[in-house]
Design a protein around this nucleic acid. Structure first.
Lengths: 197, 197
DNA sequence: CGTCTATTTGAATGTACTCAAAAGCGGTGG
DNA sequence: CCACCGCTTTTGAGTACATTCAAATAGACG
């Protein structure tokens, strides 16, 4: 059924009554995105949070000189938005782009707020979601501060094997904070080292 | 009154009845830390979350070669813990150290869990807390990926003027992910540039 | 098939690090 | 109150990691 993925995601942390399921799903707006479509542009307002049902999205920041930094990849069963902008209403610092044909559910900020009012149990769900997001980001910061580019690449490939098959090297490089050329050099090093072992 | 600071912090997001205040404060354990005392050691278990009432703490990771990376500074009115370890029970990746004589409130993991059971409203409070923490960390990641060391230093001084007066340059450098020597060079550059303008 | 983008390669460059030593600063004990 | 100790900060030389730029090659898509 249509909402199976998202309801399953939610049931990992909270249990809803059928009325609550009804109310929640009525707040969702299903969207189909084709590859390369931009769901959000930098400097625009981000008024929704999204659940990826199928496909994959990428969130990236573009600095003044045009250099991209990938903030996150979101594959199915992930929630994604530009949280700073979604919460505070300031202009977005990121683009959100479909990197595959995708099916997503959109929950508007108004419905997000209403959801907490109508079903306070969702506070728990999003508390856990935010908590996990915070934990992930903090580990990433520690790794960015204490590991070399090559070590970060290894960890990334270990942690997200499915994502690594989906995205280009250029995108991985921008997630790691290095240039595509340097990632290419790292990979070359590895294959030489492997051959000589 | 003893709990004024922490209750004030909580009332920014939720409103408690006097019974709830009573229950909540009964779960807290007040601690006084003298400067340089370690509240948590890396590789140990982190069984509590802390609220800084007075003073200042620093959270830092130590890699295999002994290099420190500061994860966060927590001054008064901040909550701090090693979230990955507090939530999942795995060994800690960080030290938490008092950088001044400090007064803190400790909330144990058991009471943290109990709190949600007894006063579900706290789900909302911590949802917002985690949300803000996530937002902060994500902005930090974007900045670490897209800005030079000097730009990161400027942003840090702008964003946390009170912290910058409290901590050593070495600690700031380890927060920015650079060596103390290089931070010193950046500062020298600045003072030269300023003199010539 | 042609076009566009991703990836690789290499040379030159720049940013940030290491190591060592000197200078500065704060706290503590005599 | 001053002298000393330990730690932080500065300085400088040499080095390493990562970038830039340009060009060639490879792959993907229409």
């Amino acid at each position: 059924m249509e909402f199976q993925g998202i309801l399953n995601n939610i049931s990992r942390h909270i249990t809803l009554s059928s009325d609550e399921v009804e109310l929640f799903t009525s707040m969702l707006n299903k969207k189909s995105l084709s590859r390369k479509l931009l769901l959000l542009r930098q400097d625009q307002l981000c008024r929704s949070i999204y659940f990826v049902d199928k496909g994959a999205l990428r969130t990236y920041h573009c600095d003044k000189s045009g250099r991209e930094s990938t903030v996150m990849f979101a594959v199915n069963d992930w929630w994604v938005t530009d949280m700073p902008c979604f919460i505070s209403g300031q202009p977005s610092m990121v683009f959100i782009e479909a990197i595959e044909d995708s099916e997503i559910f959109e929950l508007s900020k108004a419905n997000f707020d209403l959801l907490f009012e109508k079903i306070p149990l969702f506070e728990r769900f999003f508390r856990i979601l935010m908590q996990n997001a915070y934990i992930r980001e903090q580990l990433r910061i520690i790794q960015n501060l204490s590991l070399t580019a090559e070590e970060r690449y290894d960890k990334f490939m270990d942690k997200y094997p499915q994502i690594s098959k989906l995205v280009t090297q250029k995108q991985i490089a921008s997630y790691l904070g290095i240039t595509p050329e340097f990632l290419s050099a790292i990979r070359k090093n590895k294959s030489v080292a492997k051959r000589n072992q």
